[in-house]
Every structure is written in structure tokens, then in C-alpha cells.
Nucleic acid binder design. Structure first.
Length: 700
DNA sequence: CGTCTTTTGTA
DNA sequence: ACAAAAGAC
């Protein structure tokens, strides 16, 4: 297992010949960055590089706010690297990362390529290709862990199998040896002569996005040093009351660290160690709430950890339910529902407030994410992947692994997820998370004058109250798009249908096994709506109504909330008189430490396009798929009920594996994406070996 | 006031 | 499905 000197190239010569390309991805920091630290330790020259090839991500081309963050963070990183003595961050625009790296290595005469691990399926495949190709060129390629407390293959149960449930996974993590202490930034970096190594200008926004992006900068400061500050602020502030406050929709109580963590501007290992220290302190002071807050916060770090763990072991987790029977759920493919949800016009105030906040700011409190996604899946019964894709397109902290985990959890597709058949009632959730209605009033100005008593169920309010509040249900605020009772019965029907389909397919499977791999009963993925692929703001909805006279200078293509009717317009204009002078027209993002129940000025989108995501190339990846293997005894119960959980898979959008006939009566279907299938690692020993092999260099 | 029932939270 | 908590009796 030694650090494989055999793969070294060019051998012999003077030490000065060592030149290492450090390939940055989602590890945009100089502190506790193992790849960078290792490169600096070679005492040779270090060429920091970034390759921007978003087309490779297919439908998961980053959304506007995410690209904005990235652009800022790269600037910050470049400045940090220069301060350390590097000449610059070398940037490349490409549609083929591997080719771009090869070119980079050749044009710099580098002998080494270092980078930190990623665990999403695209990266696993691409990084493997990078290693093969560059090693073939005689380049020493090493990769490191910068993103996780523990590598996915390090956390195994007593039988050395990957965990399939979060709780045992996290318990195991917590009793493993502490992760390595964070590394300091390198003292100095020399890049040598880079005059023959051009950089490309990276363009992360188009004209139409500039205005909206400018607003983001008022609330957020990307970059690893700012991550550090935000983390310190959280440690010394909201963390203490984290457990007490975690039930409120108010973002001021949250860490707001997720975008930093997504781009690796903040090291989870550092977070872990510092929170642990706080916890120890509070524990000694018998500060039970504080101590519990630490556990709770670390648990959410654990969920992030687990999301990588899952995608590593089940590379299809962003498109296929991990519980196979869910693949037979008859999702309602209704783009009108989808649109209404996105626009925050479902008639359920808490849901609508959340969706408008997301739209306007790219941010959503975790609780509210659960509310809106649960509503999406259970009340509207839309395919969860649509919701996940919308989150991907709009969230500032969009993260494929975390979002896949979240949506699978909500849609009942995980062994330890929520039950699908229990509908969360947004009204009661409103009482819980937003007891004074402040959150709703802030994001739904049309309901601003409704007394708290009715704010979460305006449909029950007496006519006189509504009138006094200037609300006409069905006109300036919608009636519930689906009644909860109706949703419940529809959900029951859908579930019965799911079980029938599942049973039928299983029967068919048992009969027609020999007929080969045709697998006619395969359930295809539901494609994303075209509209979502372009992230277009719905225009008709807005055009059909009255336009708000838009104050000069505030008209912009933005993710602004579409309004619907005249009376709403009236309410808005009135409000804007009150607040118009105080610059509240910004796309508001939660800022740490205060919460003002304040009206937002809203404007109608005049055909604005939020983002022009054009990277819709559907890539096909040829991950070989073995025949299903059953892992006996791991499933929670192999009893009669669960014996019906057998399914198959299908694929339309990026296909990871060809459809495959499924196993027999296993608790979980045994196929590529399924939770009981053999892990990705088992099926791709090469990747495993490569990773393990390099793991060593990190610990040196 | 104890026991049974309902609701809630759960990654 | 299940345990804990809250509510009903």
C-alpha cells in the first residue's frame, strides 16, 4: 500500500524538477487543504489550477446563485494564493476536464498532479479517468481527503459492510478515532515561471444575471477567510442556543455555513474539532442546552457526511429511490402544480412563503426546506427529482449529494426516511415554526394584514376578517390548490397502486427471467420538464395580469416573486410606499443575528429569465452494472411485508447503468442504485484501489 | 393521580 | 414501526 513510487515518472533528476499542479475543485481554501499542503511539501513548484467545465455536469449545470458564489470564491482563492507567493490561480475553460488537465500538465511541464477527493458519481468517474490518463503519461497523480471527516470506505459496520441507515452510521463515526487535526496553510508557494501557461477568462454570469447577482453580494461574502469568520460568529453566537432555536424558521439561528462547506471553503474537520471543543467546555459548565446544540449541529455535519457516503456507495442516489418499491409510485406529472409550487401560490402560506424566499434569495431554512419538499412530494405528489432539480437550480448552497439525500429522505425512499403516507400539515407546521406569522408576512405581503390567528389558514378566516385584511381568496391569494383530505386519499390510492405494480413486476420477473435483459417492466425516470431545464420564469402567469409600474432601476431579470392580481398589486404598492425608501428591494438573504418582520417589496417579473442553463447534454456513463447481488441479513426486516420490496430500475436522464433484471425476494431490490446492492466500491475496485492507494500519501 | 389513547418526532 | 410525550379519562 505504500505511496506507490512505481507510478512515479521521470525519476532520477534533481529535486528542483518537481512541479505539481494542484487541481482545485470544491476545496477552495488554502488552509487544511491536503493536496495543496502536500504539493508545498515537495519543495518544488506549485501550479494551482481550476478547470471550469460545467457542461460536463449535464442537467446539473450549476444555477445562477451557485455560479455567482463560485466566481467570488475563486477570486478570493486567487488572492490568497498570490499572497502566499504563487503567481496566480491558473484557470481553464473547457468542455473536457481531462483534456484540459492534460494540456495544463504538458504546458507547465509538471510532473505531479494533486487534488482532493469528490464523491459524486460524475466526479468519481472523471477523476478515475484523470488518474489513468495522466499516470499513463508518466505523471504522479495523488489525491487526498479534504471534504470529509472520514472517507466513505473507512466507515463500515461490524460485518465490514457499508451502513444503510444514518443513525448507526453516525454513531460509528463518533466513536472512531478523531479525524486528523486541520493543516495550516503552506508558508510559501513558488509557482516558477508560468509565462507560457495561459489562463482563460472564466465567465460565470451573463448580462441578464448581473443585476441579481449584485444583490447577493450584500448579504454573502464567499471565500475561505469569510467562511472562517462566519464560522467563528456561529461558534460564539447561535451555536449555544442551536438546540433551542432549531424549531424556528428564522435563519438567524442557523449557521449559514452550507455554501462555504459545499465549495470546501471551510474544512469540516476544523468545524468538527472546534465544535467538539465548545461542547467540552459547555459540558464542564453543565450547559446542557449548549452541549446538545453541539451534538445537533455536528449531526447535521454528519448528514452532509452521510450524503457523500450514500452517493459513493449508490451512485444513482440522485435519480433513483434507494428503496426499490418507490420506483413504482405513480407520481403526478403535472407541470401546472409544479409551476404553482415554484411560484409560491399553493394557497398554503408557510409553503408559499418558503418558495418565495427561495426564489428571491437562494436561501431557505432547513425546516422550511422540509416543509416545501414534503408538500411537493406528498400533497402535490410530483416526482421528487423535479423538486431536487429546482433546488439545484436555485439554492445558494446547492449540493447534489445533500439534496439527493434530503429529497430521498422526504419522499420515503430511504430505509430510515420518513414514511411516505404521513402528510405533514403546513398549517400546523406554521404554528410550530412560525407561531407569530412573521415569516409568512415577510414573504407574503398579500397576507401581511391578516391577524396571526388566521395567518396559517386563511381559508378558515371569516369573510369580515379577510376583507379587513384586503384579501380575496382565489383572487389575490389562492385557495389551497389541493385540499389535504383529498391529498390523503389520493396518496393512499397511489400507494396501493404502487404496491400492485410492484407485485406485478415481481411476478413478471419470476416468470420471465430467462427472457433476458429486456426487462419490459422497467420504470423509466420521469424526465425534467423542458421548462425546468431552462429555468424560465413563467411569463404568461404574469403577463395575464396587471403589471406593476416598476420603479426605474429596479427592473431586472431576477428571481423575483411573481404576483398575480390587481389587489395584490395594490397591497404591494402601498407597502412599497412605506418601505421603499429604505432599500429593502434587495433580494433578501438572511443575515446573521437579527430578524425583522418587515415587508418586502415585490415586483412583477417582466419576462425575466432567471438563468439560462444551457448545459442540457445528457451524458451517458458506462458504469458497468453487475447482476444484482443480495446482501443477506442487512435489511432491517426480511419478514413478509418487506419481502415484497423488490424492484427494478430504469433510466432516461443521465443513465448510470443499463436496466437490469432484479433479484428475487430481497427486502431491497438488488440493483445499481438500490441500497442493498453491492456498494459502488465493490463493483469498482479500481476506483477503490486508486483512492486507497492515495489515501496513504495524505497521512504522511 | 395513574393508566390508556392519541399525537408527534424520527435522517 | 416505534418510542416518547402529551392528552384524555
Amino acid at each position: 500500500m505504500a505511496a506507490s513510487p512505481s507510478s512515479m515518472s521521470g525519476g532520477g533528476g534533481e529535486a528542483a524538477a518537481v512541479r505539481t499542479v494542484v487541481w482545485f475543485r470544491r476545496d477552495l481554501r488554502v488552509e487544511d487543504n491536503p493536496a495543496l499542503a502536500a504539493a508545498a511539501r515537495t519543495a518544488g513548484e506549485v501550479v494551482p489550477a481550476y478547470v471550469w467545465a460545467p457542461e460536463e455536469d449535464g442537467p446539473y449545470y450549476p444555477g445562477r446563485v451557485s455560479r455567482w458564489w463560485l466566481s467570488q470564491s475563486l477570486k478570493h482563492l486567487d488572492a490568497s494564493l498570490r499572497r502566499l507567493g504563487a503567481s496566480r490561480l491558473v484557470t481553464r475553460r473547457s468542455t473536457d476536464t481531462v483534456a484540459a488537465l492534460l494540456d495544463l500538465v504538458r504546458s507547465t511541464g509538471a510532473t505531479h498532479l494533486f487534488f482532493n477527493h469528490l464523491y459524486d458519481p460524475l466526479s468519481l468517474v472523471r477523476d478515475h479517468r484523470v488518474k489513468e490518463l495522466l499516470a499513463g503519461e508518466g505523471i504522479t497523480v495523488q489525491s487526498f481527503n479534504s471534504d470529509l471527516l472520514y472517507e466513505p470506505w473507512e466507515v463500515l459496520d461490524d460485518d465490514c459492510c457499508p451502513f444503510t441507515m444514518f443513525t448507526p452510521f453516525w454513531e460509528k463515526c463518533l466513536c472512531m478515532a478523531d479525524p486528523a487535526a486541520p493543516l495550516l496553510p503552506p508558508k510559501r508557494i513558488h509557482s516558477g515561471d508560468l509565462s507560457r501557461c495561459p489562463s482563460d477568462d472564466l465567465i460565470f454570469e451573463d448580462e441578464s444575471e448581473r443585476g441579481s447577482n449584485a444583490l447577493l453580494a450584500r448579504a454573502w461574502s464567499p471565500g475561505w477567510q469569510n467562511a472562517d469568520k462566519a464560522f467563528a460568529a456561529f461558534l460564539n453566537g447561535p451555536l449555544m442556543d442551536y438546540s433551542v432555536n432549531s424549531k424556528k424558521a428564522d435563519s438567524a439561528n442557523t449557521s449559514l455555513l452550507s455554501p462555504y462547506l459545499h465549495f470546501g471553503e471551510l474544512s469540516v474537520r476544523k468545524v468538527f474539532h472546534q465544535v467538539r471543543m465548545k461542547q467540552l467546555t459547555w459540558s464542564n459548565e453543565s450547559n446542557l442546552d449548549g452541549e446538545e446544540g453541539c451534538s445537533l449541529f455536528l449531526r447535521s455535519i454528519g448528514l452532509r457526511e452521510y450524503s457523500r457516503y450514500l452517493t459513493f456507495n449508490h451512485p444513482c442516489s440522485h435519480e433513483k429511490p434507494l428503496l426499490a418499491h418507490l420506483r413504482f409510485f405513480p407520481w403526478v406529472v403535472n407541470e401546472v402544480y409544479f409551476k404553482v409550487w415554484r411560484q409560491g401560490r399553493t394557497g398554503y402560506p408557510l409553503v408559499d412563503a418558503g418558495m418565495r424566499e427561495l426564489w428571491a434569495t437562494g436561501w431557505l431554512h432547513d425546516r422550511i426546506r422540509v416543509v416545501v419538499s414534503s408538500f411537493f412530494v406528498k400533497v402535490l405528489q410530483l416526482p421528487w427529482r423535479w423538486g431536487m432539480k429546482y433546488f439545484w437550480d436555485t439554492l445558494l448552497d446547492a449540493d447534489l449529494e445533500s439534496d439527493a439525500l434530503g429529497w430521498q429522505y422526504i419522499s420515503g425512499s430511504l430505509p430510515d426516511g420518513r414514511e411516505l403516507d404521513r402528510i405533514d400539515n403546513p398549517q400546523f407546521e406554521g404554528y410550530k415554526f412560525d407561531p407569530y406569522g412573521e415569516y409568512v408576512r415577510r414573504w407574503l405581503p398579500e397576507l401581511a394584514r391578516l391577524p396571526t390567528e388566521w395567518i396559517h389558514h386563511p381559508w378558515d378566516a371569516p369573510e369580515s376578517v379577510l376583507q379587513a385584511a384586503g384579501i380575496e381568496l382565489g383572487s389575490n391569494y389562492p385557495l389551497p390548490i389541493v385540499e389535504l383530505d383529498e391529498a390523503k386519499s389520493r396518496l393512499q390510492e397511489a400507494l396501493s397502486e404502487m404496491w400492485e405494480l410492484e407485485a406485478a413486476s415481481r411476478a413478471e420477473m419470476e416468470n420471465g427471467m430467462e427472457e433476458g435483459l429486456g426487462d419490459s417492466s422497467d420504470v423509466p425516470l420521469i424526465a425534467f420538464p423542458q421548462e425546468l431545464q431552462q429555468m424560465e420564469v413563467d411569463r404568461e402567469m404574469v403577463r395575464g395580469t396587471i403589471h406593476i409600474p416598476t420603479p426605474a432601476g429596479r427592473r431586472r431579470a431576477d428571481q423575483m416573486v411573481p404576483s398575480m392580481t390587481t389587489s395584490l398589486v395594490r397591497a404591494e404598492t402601498e407597502l412599497s410606499v412605506d418601505f421603499g425608501s429604505s432599500e429593502v428591494s434587495r433580494a433578501e438573504v438572511p443575515s446573521q443575528g437579527h430578524f425583522q418582520p418587515q415587508m418586502e417589496i415585490r415586483e412583477v417579473v417582466n419576462g425575466g429569465t432567471a438563468a439560462t442553463n444551457n448545459g442540457v447534454h445528457h451524458q451517458q456513463y458506462n458504469l458497468q452494472n453487475n447482476l444484482n447481488r443480495v446482501r443477506g441479513g442487512v435489511a432491517p426486516s426480511t419478514s413478509e411485508a418487506s419481502s415484497s420490496w423488490t424492484g427494478r430500475e430504469g433510466g432516461v436522464v443521465p443513465v448510470w447503468s443499463p436496466p437490469v433484471a432484479s433479484g428475487h425476494s430481497d427486502p431491497y431490490a438488488a440493483d445499481e442504485a438500490d441500497i442493498s446492492s453491492r456498494s459502488y466500491l465493490d463493483r469498482h475496485p479500481e476506483s477503490h484501489r486508486l483512492m486507497n492507494w492515495n489515501q496513504l500519501s495524505q497521512s504522511s
